[in-house]
Amino acid sequence: MRSIARVFATALSALALAGALVAPAAAQTLKMMIPANPGGGWDQTGRNLAAAMQSAGLVKSVQFENKGGAAGTIGLAQFVNASKGDPNVLMVGGMVMIGGIYLNDSPVNLTMVTPVARLTSEYEVVVVPANSPFKTMADLVKAFKADPGKVSWGGGSAGGTDHILIGLIAKATGADSTKINYVPFKGGGEAIAAIIGGHVTAGVSGLGEFSEQIKGGRMRALAISSPQREEGIPTLKELGIAVELGNWRGVFGAPGITTAQRDVLVKLVHDATVTPAWKATLEKLGWSGVFLGGEQYQAFLAEDTKRIATIIDSLGIKKK
């Protein structure tokens, strides 16, 4: 509930910001770069956002380009090089991209594009198999601190959101984050099978991914990385672990567009996020709306980039 209120607050500020300028009309056709293969979170974000725009008649048509790979940095590189100064293009991106840029020493980064808006966030949940001896987060942390190697953590790709969360937990509880026994899995149930089968000690992923297994009693959720409880799962914060982490996704404009041009895009995206179509999307995919537009988004980005770099360094996985 609170998150919705916050959406409204930020939405209002964005509206004021956009309204202050006599906004030129939005383009009839918009191009959207999705730096991932079809089907994933970014693809869903981009296509649903476009559908929301079209449902409200904000744009006439949207053309997509999917260019997946290397945590989005391949698509980002093309976006930086090919769309300079074009006011009618958007690129989807998110937290995973920041990690990817930092891990791969990518020659392009998000300071080279124009932040438009943060859209959604997905929170992370820590689970154990239903028959695990660990009943609470404290049990798990205790075992982890006693012998880090014995606790294997299953999650998404190395250096991704899930890994970063474990790093943050280790740091917040005073455990050694370089000693995490992290076992990366690809999405789509591979990690779930390993967790349910008891092949790893614990698992970390977006709530949506595990939600059904938790409800079905095959997994026990120990904690969630959101600011408030979701689905009755205690937050890390209330368990005394000062960590909050959302896997956010957002959109970016081309490099070198003017502030006025950016504000047109901010307004366009904002208007799309208040449509019923977009709200239905959030509901369906279990995402939280965390709209943040223009400068605020830029400031948030700078801060998050720093935070992620620090935590990846402490995981000891970045090649020297």
């Binding site: 293969n37 089907g39 789509g188 149930g189 779930i192 349910i196 059904e212």
Partner: peptide, 16 residues
């Protein structure tokens, strides 16, 4: 083709 959709076939496929 499954992987293109972000689906990894395996025992969980029947449930998910």
């Amino acid at each position: 083709a499954f992987q293109n959709y972000g689906i990894q076939p395996g025992p969980m496929l029947f449930q998910m």
